[in-house]
Design a protein around this nucleic acid. Structure first.
Length: 422
RNA sequence: GGAGAGAUGGCAGAGCGGUCUAAUGCGGCGGUCUUGAAAACCGUUGACCCAAAAGGUCCGGGGGUUCGAAUCCCUCUCUCUCCGCCA
């Protein structure tokens, strides 16, 4: 959520930057500021009347103590009439506060000035690429054929147990998942991230904190009986660890990593993109999250991009890094880099990681702050990235590494997988 | 799931209708003393709204009673103890 004071002081800039993000309902900004004006006015009225109520009530106490019952009664009348004039103000105040809050949570984060203009994924900018594209034979198979050939992922039985998009990993397929998770976690820990294993369901306040609510409500699985949401990514519980906390400046940066399954309803997505492991409702991911000093967040973003790139390089898959244009960015992000790997049999780039700086958008909701050297309260900046999401890595790895003698496992992974090939 | 107890400032913990502007201790910060440090002593020390002052709000969340609520009532959440169930 944007900081109200910033919107107040930079109205035109806010509108202009929202346009970069393809956000059209600019009238919300004007509405919001008029709610804010009214709120301030009502609050002042309320406070001054409340001050009289407080002091008069105090006098009543003193009069009672002295036994001056009649005078006390008069004062009681006075307070009663003050309070009745307070009621409509406080009613109106809570309405206006609600309207202000509703407007505020509708505004996406402002894109940083480094964000390229553009409306669709076609406008994203390729920052760099790496790895080597394999030369596959003409009869190379897409991963959804390979998983059947080697009997390592069973979508049909997954659908029988739960529904479509819930893969059942089997044998070497299951072990490959475990190996990747373990490898990614160890890699992240080696770079100074602290490992967590968070709850996979979260409450409403947590889902709100990272911006899933109210924006993406329909994308999460929801458990009505307990009012819990299945996490769409471990970013949600991880970032919320420090919700409502005031940190010490020397605690920063906080670097966290976690494995979790991720649950996404993917409502509204359809078509050929969803074949095989390209898009599923439950998948495994290892996430990295950082809470940092606001002056350092863009530096840290680059550091995290380099971290993910290094990890990807060890898997020897062909990849490219995209800087997302305004129109393709998520609601909460100020700047995002996407990582894609090239799935050679599908001849398609698949997103495997998204690394973003949220600046103070999430931490303003969560009130994660620190006291700076001058004793001033400041919001920390939050960042996160996948390191990495598994299914598309697996898809790419299966397709790109297929040989007549099976599927080659990248060297870095062999120690975890316990074999050189499938 | 049942019974009971509880939730107060960074932490511990008192307060149980008006003097709460929340005691006290610990911790933090500053100072005195010291070559320096420790100890001792002195001072200081929360967040939010408001441009700021004044003022207001915050004693787990929400609601109520009252002229007045940290304090009484209702409700929710969480924690602890005991019982039950359980991988």
């Amino acid at each position: 959520m944007l900081q109200l004071a910033f919107i107040r002081n930079n109205k035109e800039e806010v509108k202009q930057r929202l346009t970069v993000k393809n956000f059209a309902e600019l009238s919300i900004v004007d509405d919001l500021l008029s709610f804010d004006e009214e709120r301030k006015r009502l609050q002042q009225q309320f406070d001054s009347i409340q001050a009289r109520v407080n002091s008069t009530s105090k006098q009543i106490g003193q009069l009672m103590a002295k036994g001056q019952k009649d005078d006390a009664e008069n004062k009681k009348q006075e307070v009663a009439s003050l309070k009745s004039s307070l009621q409509p103000i406080s009613d109106r105040l809570s309405i206006v506060e609600k309207q202000l809050e509703d407007a505020l949570v509708k505004l996406p984060n402002l894109p940083s000035d480094k964000v390229p203009p553009g409306k669709t994924p076609a406008d994203n900018i390729v920052v760099r690429a790496g790895g080597v594209e394999p030369q596959l034979s003409a009869n190379a198979l897409p991963h959804w054929e390979l998983i059947k050939k080697y009997d390592i992922v069973d979508f049909e039985t997954g659908a029988k147990i739960t529904g479509s998009g819930f893969p059942l990993y089997k044998g070497k397929g299951a072990k490959l998942q475990r190996a990747l998770i373990q490898y990614f976690l160890d890699f992240n820990i080696g770079e100074g991230y602290t490992e967590y294993l968070p709850p996979f369901m979260v409450n409403e306040a947590t889902a709100y904190g990272t911006g899933q609510l109210p924006d993406k409500e329909g994308q999460m699985y929801y458990m009505q009986a307990d009012n819990f949401y299945m996490i769409p990514t471990s970013e949600v519980p991880l970032t919320n660890i420090y919700r409502d906390e005031i940190l010490k400046e020397e605690d920063l940066p906080i670097r966290m990593t976690a494995y979790s399954p991720c649950f996404r309803r993917e409502a509204g997505s359809f078509g050929k993109d969803v074949r095989g492991l390209n898009r599923v409702h439950q998948f495994d991911k290892v996430e990295i999250v950082q809470l940092v000093h606001p002056e350092r967040s863009y530096e840290v973003l680059e550091e995290m991009v380099n971290h993910v790139e290094k990890l990807l390089n060890t898997l020897t898959l062909p990849y490219r890094i995209l800087k997302l244009c305004g129109g393709d960015m998520s609601f909460a992000s100020a700047l995002t880099y996407d990582f894609e790997v090239f799935s050679a049999a599908q001849q398609k780039w698949l997103e495997v990681s998204s690394v973003s700086n949220f600046e103070s958008f999430q931490t303003n909701r969560m009130k994660i702050r620190f006291k700076d050297g001058n004793g001033k309260m400041q919001l920390v900046h939050s960042l996160n990235g996948s390191a990495l999401a598994l299914p598309r890595i697996v898809a790419c790895l299966l397709e790109n590494n297929q040989t007549e003698n099976g599927i080659k496992i990248p060297l870095a992974l062999q120690r975890y997988f316990g074999a050189e090939s499938i």
